[in-house]
């Protein structure tokens, strides 16, 4: 709905706060999603996401949500679906070249970004949309990605010693193991 969309941009900071909470929740739930199976949770989560975001942002379910980098103004509503700023055809008063009755999505975006804590993200160059991901849940994609990054960071910490002594690991593998240790192989007293 156009008026709700304008409301979202006016309250971009509030929505930024709200989304951060949601994102944290989704990352926390990721192990659960993994256990159920990401494929199985996809449809119900996408359904909820579609309902919420189409109401608030006129979301088109591109599956690669960038609202946090576009002042909470969805770039898929731009008739040219530009992902990196307004075109050169914006009309006086900030109206759309193609749909003269609509405010330019990107004029709104820049406006919304100024109110956000992380508004500077609008300056990053974003890649083109992958049309193969249309209709899928962006929330799940983000939580999978962030959870994977967290796992990777933990893994990097755990394997730092092994990677610092590559030759030792090669000749005496037991001195710098990369592989996960089974719990019984480790002295519980020392670890505590």
């Amino acid at each position: 709905m156009y008026r709700l969309r304008l409301f979202a941009v006016r309250h971009s900071r509030g929505f930024e706060w709200l989304y951060r909470r949601l994102e944290r929740l989704m990352i926390g739930l990721d192990p659960l999603f993994a256990r159920i199976g990401h494929d199985r949770v996809e449809a119900p989560v996408a359904l909820i996401e579609r309902g919420v975001k189409s109401l608030l942002f006129d979301c088109r379910m591109c599956g690669q949500c960038v609202l946090s980098s576009t002042g909470m103004s969805c770039p898929m509503n731009c008739p040219k679906q530009l992902r990196n700023g307004p075109c050169g055809g914006v009309r006086p008063g900030g109206f759309c070249e193609v749909k003269p009755a609509m405010r330019c999505v990107w004029a709104l975006a820049w406006d919304g970004a100024t109110r956000m804590e992380d508004g500077a993200r609008i300056r990053e160059v974003l890649p083109p949309v992958d049309h193969g991901l249309k209709g899928s849940s962006s929330w799940l994609r983000v939580s999978r990605e962030k959870a994977a990054a967290l796992r990777e960071a933990r893994e990097a910490e755990r394997t730092a010693l092994a990677r610092a002594f590559p030759a030792a690991r090669e000749i005496e593998p037991a001195t710098a193991p990369l592989a996960e240790e089974p719990p019984r192989a480790v002295s519980q007293e020392v670890r505590k």
Partner: peptide
């Protein structure tokens, strides 16, 4: 980016806009 198809001589054409000018530059 390009002007919208609506202003041209064949307004029924399908607008593509797969890239925008910035993703095109980066490409």
């Amino acid at each position: 980016t390009g002007d919208g198809v609506g202003v041209g001589d064949q307004p029924g054409a399908k607008p593509v806009f797969d890239f925008d000018s910035l993703s095109l530059l980066r490409t």
